[in-house]
Design a protein around this nucleic acid. Structure first.
Length: 491
RNA sequence: GCCCCCAUCGUCUAGCGGCCUAGGACACCGGCCUUUCACGCCGGCAGCACGGGUUCGAAUCCCGUUGGGGGCGCCA
């Protein structure tokens, strides 16, 4: 007779965010690892909204988190299950713990507890509930209740011994019970807290693997204690992921800047690139590949290759990866999903032939839609076109800038209107000019900067009239500048 | 203050006792290509925090130190 192996059980995981803000990269990575694990093992990925803190939870965040998850391509199989709709269940569980003596009524007010904790900290003592209401007699409880004191329910943690569990990524994690104090499971307003709801739901939903951030490592002991108190000693498998940190190596938070996933979407990052990058934060496939499709990630992912050290979120590498995904797109795809949105941002509409010319020119030079929009900003109408002094100075630092512009003007005035025919590099060479030295003057005249999208494509898109207008304007500015310089600084 | 976790190039990582004079990627620096800038290609710089053990042999195992992080909420 063979025993059923644990691995044959179907995997059930959940992503359980608190709807108190937007989904950030840390949460997204947690969601992704849960999703990858579920898909890899053919399991079930559940979305659970931990909105037990009614005051801080907001409907709009619940919607926002779901939309962002879908944008990333992380579809859930069950849910969303809102904990706010299951309060009866948690309250019943708390009642049971109360009758069994595993929890007790606490009449300390929130302020009192906080003050005592602050005092403890000030005096160098360990903060934590001091157990004041732990062993109240029925008479004392009645008296407190009679005074109209608020009543919360606390879980009684063991006084001695060691709490220990196995974590897939961290190994055995053990801590003395004496360092874990009694904690509140029902607020004085009658609503349940995280530990309770979390423990109850993981049992009810038959969660097999809990994959979450390392910031929850210590709380696991408490959840496990509750679970045992319910009579479910057989715990799920835990995997605590390394934290994603900011430049200061601290846990990522609002002050680290644009970390809302919506921001990445708005700036024109591809969900595939973001997912790919996020997957590599705390995990790596065994063959060293870095660019992996979602299917490839699913196939390669498993918890045993998750590492333990905190990871810094590197925007530069994300930019590179997004660029890789952009370059891998077909021209049609690129034009539709990158170029056109970028043109919309600068409020410019172009005919199809111009779109085609720009697609080829832009593809290898772009990291995001935003970035492309910036590179296309020279397409604004003439009265809004500007050349910064710094860019101008850099470009005309080359000798013979007037000559370069004159060649360009003469050529553009009479050439055939195709990108190829616009090319006057041979004429520059014939005049004894080095194209690499000469061209920046053209770039600054046409695009307002000395570096940018290829010049002849830019001119083509701009059209003959506007191209000539810009070249001539630059030529005039050059003359004006020379006049001024000539009057004051004889050489 | 107490508890817990972590420690390989600037960054993300490979490495799970000999294959490591430590591999890859991003970034950076050269060169080639080239109408600028990019892309691409070639090359380079750069790391096992420190100190003790264990072992014939340690980036890999153990202990300590240092450093970093997380937690200690009627937040999750």
């Amino acid at each position: 007779m063979t025993e059923p192996a644990r691995t044959t059980e179907s995997v059930r995981v959940r992503f359980s965010p608190a709807p108190t803000g937007f989904l950030h990269v840390g949460g997204a990575r947690t969601a992704l690892f849960n999703w990858l694990f579920a898909r890899h093992h053919g399991g079930t990925f559940i979305l659970r909204i931990e909105d037990t803190d009614v005051a801080r939870s907001r409907e709009e965040w619940i919607t926002g988190i779901q939309q962002t998850l879908l944008w990333l391509g992380l579809r859930w199989d069950e849910g969303p299950v809102l904990q706010s709709g299951r309060f009866d269940r948690y309250l019943a569980a708390a009642e049971r713990l109360l009758t069994e003596g595993k929890a007790y009524e606490c009449f300390c007010t929130e302020d009192e507890v906080r003050e005592r904790n602050e005092a403890a900290r000030r005096e160098g003592r360990t903060p934590g509930y001091d157990g004041r209401c732990r062993d109240l007699t029925p008479e004392q409880r009645a008296a407190f209740a009679g005074e109209g004191r608020p009543r919360s329910i606390r879980f009684r943690t063991p006084d001695e011994g060691v709490s220990c569990f196995d974590d897939v990524v961290r190994g055995e994690v053990a801590v003395e019970w004496s360092t874990i104090h009694d904690f509140v499971i029902i607020r004085s307003d009658g609503t349940p807290l995280f530990f309770l709801a979390n423990a109850v739901d993981d049992v009810d939903m038959e969660i097999t693997h809990v994959i979450r951030g390392e910031d929850l490592l210590d709380s696991t002991h408490r959840v496990l204690a509750l679970r045992a108190a319910f009579g479910h000693p057989d715990p799920p498998v835990y995997a605590h992921l390394p934290l994603i940190v900011g430049a200061d190596r601290a846990k990522l938070s609002k002050r680290h800047g644009a970390i809302a996933l919506e921001d990445f979407r708005d700036r024109g990052y591809l969900p595939e690139a973001l997912v790919n990058y996020l997957a590599l934060l705390g995990w790596a496939p065994d063959d060293g590949r870095e660019i992996l499709t979602q299917d490839e990630l699913v196939a390669a992912f498993d918890l045993d290759r998750v590492n333990r050290s905190p990871a810094f979120f590197d925007y530069q590498k994300l930019d590179w990866m997004n660029g890789e995904y952009l370059r891998a797109m077909s021209d049609d795809q690129f034009a539709a999903s990158v170029l056109r949105p970028a043109l919309e941002r600068v409020d410019v509409t172009l005919p199809d032939d111009a779109i085609a010319a720009l697609t080829a020119a832009a593809k290898p030079r772009v990291t995001t839609v935003n970035d492309l929009a910036d590179q296309l900003s020279f397409l604004v109408d003439e009265k809004n076109f500007e050349i910064s002094d710094a860019e101008w100075a850099r470009a005309v630092a080359t000798q013979r800038a007037q000559e370069v512009l004159d060649i360009a003007i003469a050529h553009v005035e009479r050439c055939e209107w195709t990108v190829e025919a616009l090319n006057f590099v041979t004429e520059l060479k014939d005049a004894g000019l080095k194209p690499a030295k000469a061209m920046p003057a053209i770039y600054v005249a046409i695009e307002g900067r000395s570096r940018g999208l290829p010049a002849f494509e830019a001119m083509y898109v701009l059209g003959r009239e506007r191209t000539l207008a810009r070249l001539r304007a630059a030529r005039r500015r050059l003359d004006d500048g020379l006049d001024q310089a000539g009057s004051g600084t004889p050489d």
